[in-house]
Simulated scan of single mutants.
Amino acid sequence: MAPVELHASLQDQVLSYIRNFPNSACDQSLLYGLALVGVVSVFSLTASFLRLLSTLTVCGGYKLTKFGPKGSWAVITGASDGLGKEFALQIAAKGFNVVLVSRTASKLQALASEISEKYKVETRTVAMDFAKNDDSDYARLAQEVNNLDVSILVNNVGKSHDIPVPFAETDLNEMKDIININCHGTLRVTSLVIPGMMERKRGLILTMGSFGGLFPTPLLATYSGSKAFLQQWSTALGSELAPYNIKTELVLSYLVTSAMSKIRKSSALIPNPKNFVKSTLGSIGAQRGAKRAGTNTPYWTHAVMHWAIESFVGIYSGVALNVNKGFHVDIRKRALRKREREAKKQ
């Protein structure tokens, strides 16, 4: 048979099969099975979206007093600027005393004075550089918190790369600082606080995650890995502490105006620290946007973005990876051009 005749014969067979489908019990079962899968998928997606809407519009989170009375203490790391400062202000406004932990003593003292004067609560400060991972710093912090009724811990201290950079070109000191601050700092502070929470059988631990840890992020590989570590650690810790009535939650964000992001102007996708923290403290336990236990994406546009990517693209898909890579390649190019312009001015 000639090739053209063979092609025509196959085409006739296919057309005949389509005209006669379903022509057997097996074909009908397959058709019904595919239809059922489609219905279940649509139902599941619809239910997931309705749940997202409910957490954004109707269902609020737990009040902070669920985790400890007013007058108990909150420990906030990275408290001198940005999100950490805003967490300190808003938690103090709700009647909690605060322990402010960060690197710069002068900024901590200024914030402590502002909080004491404005909200009439007690404050304590501990100036320490988390990048050094110094045992003596943690010993001083332990002395401050060991005899306090700490009901809230906000693990906010964090560091990213100065600019997006290939891992092979990452400065060794920058790499060490990211791991010491994001990982060692978070774990060591938490280990100081949780024994008291376990004894009192109550408490709240908020740990700042990132979309950079949710999605593998080329050119931010070390930072991305450190935040992914916190995702797994926080979820596992939450399961361990649940019998003690301690709520552990990883807080995810896209971009927020801050010194770390180097973004000054807010927008629908990029809130300022005040609005982001307000969303966080107002949605504890709501699990906005996220499908993982113990995870919350509090700001509404971030939650919608998180839900859409998980539902339609996939966190680990090649599409998400390539888009993320292209985004950070462009940022790196702009940052390098800016460095060149500044170098020429000197």
Rank of each mutant, 00 (worst) to 15 (best):
residue 288 R to Q: 03
residue 36 L to D: 10
residue 158 G to C: 07
residue 144 E to Q: 13
residue 217 T to L: 06
residue 157 V to D: 07
residue 27 D to I: 01
residue 139 A to H: 09
residue 305 M to N: 01
residue 264 R to D: 15
residue 54 S to R: 08
residue 306 H to F: 12
residue 138 Y to V: 15
residue 153 L to S: 04
residue 151 S to L: 07
residue 252 L to Q: 05
residue 20 N to L: 13
residue 264 R to H: 15
residue 276 F to S: 01
residue 290 A to W: 00
residue 180 N to H: 14
residue 317 S to Y: 09
residue 276 F to V: 02
residue 195 P to Q: 13
residue 287 Q to A: 07
residue 119 Y to E: 10
residue 211 F to A: 02
residue 194 I to E: 02
residue 275 N to R: 15
residue 258 S to R: 05
residue 273 P to H: 04
residue 94 K to A: 13
residue 18 I to K: 08
residue 91 I to R: 02
residue 281 L to V: 05
residue 57 T to F: 10
residue 274 K to D: 15
residue 62 Y to H: 11
residue 256 V to I: 14
residue 220 L to Q: 08
residue 144 E to K: 08
residue 311 S to L: 02
residue 162 D to T: 13
residue 1 M to F: 15
residue 10 L to I: 14
residue 214 L to G: 00
residue 17 Y to W: 15
residue 17 Y to E: 05
residue 95 G to V: 11
residue 91 I to M: 06
residue 72 S to T: 11
residue 56 L to Y: 00
residue 161 H to Y: 05
residue 195 P to K: 07
residue 168 A to K: 15
residue 288 R to E: 03
residue 55 T to N: 01
residue 215 F to Q: 00
residue 314 G to S: 06
residue 256 V to W: 01
residue 71 G to L: 13
residue 81 D to H: 14
residue 316 Y to N: 11
residue 22 P to G: 06
residue 260 M to F: 09
residue 117 E to P: 03
residue 344 K to T: 12
residue 20 N to D: 11
residue 266 S to G: 11
residue 20 N to G: 06
residue 336 L to K: 12
residue 60 G to E: 05
residue 77 T to L: 05
residue 264 R to T: 10
residue 119 Y to Q: 13
residue 132 K to A: 13
residue 99 V to K: 00
residue 300 W to V: 08
residue 297 T to G: 01
residue 32 Y to G: 02
residue 47 A to I: 04
residue 236 A to W: 15
residue 80 S to M: 10
residue 196 G to T: 13
residue 305 M to R: 02
residue 144 E to M: 10
residue 261 S to V: 08
residue 44 S to I: 03
residue 74 A to T: 12
residue 149 D to Y: 12
residue 132 K to S: 09
residue 124 R to D: 07
residue 86 E to N: 09
residue 215 F to D: 00
residue 6 L to G: 08
residue 218 P to H: 05
residue 161 H to A: 07
residue 333 K to T: 08
residue 313 V to S: 02
residue 87 F to D: 00
residue 128 M to Y: 04
residue 19 R to L: 13
residue 297 T to E: 01
residue 175 M to K: 11
residue 289 G to F: 00
residue 329 V to D: 06
residue 92 A to N: 03
residue 152 I to M: 01
residue 61 G to E: 02
residue 255 L to T: 03
residue 178 I to G: 01
residue 141 L to C: 08
residue 142 A to C: 11
residue 49 F to G: 00
residue 111 L to S: 06
residue 322 N to M: 07
residue 250 L to T: 12
residue 42 V to E: 06
residue 111 L to H: 07
residue 43 F to P: 00
residue 10 L to S: 11
residue 224 S to M: 03
residue 18 I to N: 03
residue 96 F to V: 10
residue 281 L to P: 01
residue 8 A to F: 13
residue 247 K to F: 14
residue 138 Y to E: 05
residue 230 L to K: 10
residue 131 A to Y: 04
residue 183 C to A: 05
